[in-house]
């Protein structure tokens, strides 16, 4: 109870900031899905013949639920790197918070709550845009909103924990290039992973994006079976739990010195 109240106070701080600065985030949150869906789904997609491999649906509909997940992952990366480091080192807002009754663990919880809410809003906007552009295969795509949020958090939680250990931001470029980029391109958003060389697949299975895309797409087309779906959700949840557990340790180590 105490923890929830304290974490909520931290959430309010982010919300206060957001209220002053929402325009920039909102514009990119709206423009990104429009650009992606129009250019890749409708433009490029018009040249793509629908095959049995992608379920026989128009390419833009194949793409839409996966793009919700991919955008959530990009948003998660953005929210879990420089912004975290700044609150330790530059703005020092975390340092200010732990001088109050709020504990380092509660600082982390409030941060994760904030990121989760951001991902949810982004995903919802994306789905709305997709529906307007006729990229939604059916109402099942609504499920992509919580599923993309979960996948985003599954990447965010470990990344936030990692960011809490850094003294300078140099490693972030490496993450953008060698983790986020391949996850965006090669985990099933744009083409089925069965097209990849077999030795790559185990690596793909480790990524939160593959699990998220499987879930979101399955939900959008109503082809999700309970067993694999539970497996994907369990894996993503486990990533969140492990990430938060490490985050609590690293936040404590960093703030209680």
């Amino acid at each position: 109870m105490q923890t929830l109240k304290a974490s909520w106070a931290g959430f309010e701080k982010s919300w206060t900031w957001y209220r002053r600065n929402w325009q920039a985030t909102a514009v990119s949150g709206f423009v990104t899905p429009v650009l992606l869906l129009v250019a890749l789904g409708l433009g490029f997609g018009s040249q793509v013949e629908s095959t049995a491999l992608i379920g026989g649906v128009p390419y833009v509909q194949y793409l839409a639920p996966a793009l919700v997940v991919v955008t959530a992952l990009q948003g998660a990366t953005f929210e879990s790197t420089y912004s975290i480091m700044s609150q330790f080192l530059w703005q020092k807002s975390y340092v200010a918070m732990v001088a109050t009754p709020i504990t380092p663990a509660q600082v982390l919880y409030s941060q994760m709550m904030w990121i989760g809410s951001q991902l949810f809003v982004r995903s919802a906007v994306f789905v709305g845009v997709a529906a307007l552009l006729g990229a939604a295969a059916g109402p099942g795509i609504l499920l992509a909103i919580p599923l993309a949020t979960l996948a985003g958090l599954a990447f965010s939680a470990p990344l936030v924990a990692y960011s809490a250990t850094l003294e300078k931001p140099d490693a972030f470029t490496t993450i953008f290039r060698f983790v986020l980029m391949p996850m965006t391109l090669f985990t099933g958003a744009f083409f089925p992973v069965s097209q990849l060389p077999g030795w790559l697949l185990p690596l793909v299975w480790l990524t939160p994006s593959w699990h998220g895309i499987e879930l979101a797409r399955g939900a959008a087309f109503g082809t999700l079976d309970l067993l694999p779906a539970s497996g994907h959700v369990a894996y993503l949840t486990a990533l969140v739990v492990v990430g938060v557990a490490f985050g609590v340790r690293f936040f404590h180590r960093r703030l209680a010195v």
Binding site: K13, R20, K92, V95, A96
Partner: peptide, 10 residues
């Protein structure tokens, strides 16, 4: 604290 940690964007 020795170093200010205000929320400068608020």
């Amino acid at each position: 604290p020795q170093l200010d940690n205000l929320d400068t964007e608020l």
